[in-house]
Design a protein around this nucleic acid. Structure first.
Lengths: 146, 146
DNA sequence: CTCCGACTTTGGACAATATCCAGATCCTTG
DNA sequence: CAAGGATCTGGATATTGTCCAAAGTCGGAG
């Protein structure tokens, strides 16, 4: 079986290994944004001897290939978004870490030359912060309980 | 000496300790965005017996008070921005982690009701990504060296 | 001014996330 | 199907951050 991802790996000179297949499979099977540890957990179910180092390395490779997007949404673990296309931003619950995709069509304003500070621009990521309904309810309950 | 920060601490019932003064002093003396470890380093020079736990706790308190902004710009350490006003966004070098402020006046588009997914919105942060001039030069050098 | 209780700090253990490395393994090419 | 370089493994190590019990300190009451 050749998914587009696997094809691109081959074309770039990467070898086709069971480990890479498994990581690709885990990512494609999810529409939430997993952390590396979550990917490792699921990958271990499919290929018990896979190692942590391999999962981390593979996620980096996929990121470099543009197959997944690495997201730094909060100060915790990075998350991996398998939906590269269409471009979109994210909405995060600051309390529990829940992530929603924001409809595409929204984009960050560009930077003027002066604001670029001589840097080569590579893109912009908008992170909307809020509190999800569940956490709001839980906060209200906690207040009542006092 | 009573900086505005110290006043607000008192009014909220926080005690005025040497450790809090030192952390405040470190933050005010910097216009770059320090990591907690960097704050610890500088604070240790001013007050050698200060502990890591205190610095982390103090940075959290200052964040809750609105005196500093906690930034999750990349997947590495959180950074603390002492310039709360005016609101502004950030430009990050993905290679070395260097951070520039982006001129205020830029802001993220709002979210429609459907895009809010029932969450209570608390704000949006735009992170512009790129490669700074130094890192571009270094990458070019590396290529020549091969 | 002194004392005491509550708030704060300390330091070291622990947790979560991530990277590195040497040796073992395994794809792919020829 | 053998060789060789790419890849993987497992464990050590690094980085960042949190937790906790005991010790210490701030600041209001007297």
């Amino acid at each position: 079986m050749h998914t587009p991802l696997i094809d691109r790996l081959r074309r770039r000179g990467y070898r086709l290994t069971a480990q890479r297949r498994v990581v690709a499979e885990v990512l494609e099977g999810e529409n939430v944004h997993l952390t590396a540890e979550a990917v490792l957990d699921r990958a271990t179910e499919l290929l018990p001897e896979i190692s942590r180092a391999t999962v981390y390395a593979t996620l980096q490779q996929f990121t470099e290939l543009g197959e997944v997007r690495e997201l730094a949404l909060d100060g915790r673990a990075k998350r991996y978004d398998p939906n590269v296309e269409p471009a979109h931003h994210h909405l995060v619950c600051d309390t529990c870490g829940l992530v929603f995709d924001v409809a595409h069509g929204i984009d960050a304003p560009g930077l003027s030359g002066a604001d670029r500070h001589g840097m080569a621009m590579q893109g912009a990521e908008i992170v909307y912060h809020g509190e999800c309904a569940d956490c709001s309810v839980r906060a209200a309950d906690d207040k009542m309980a006092t």
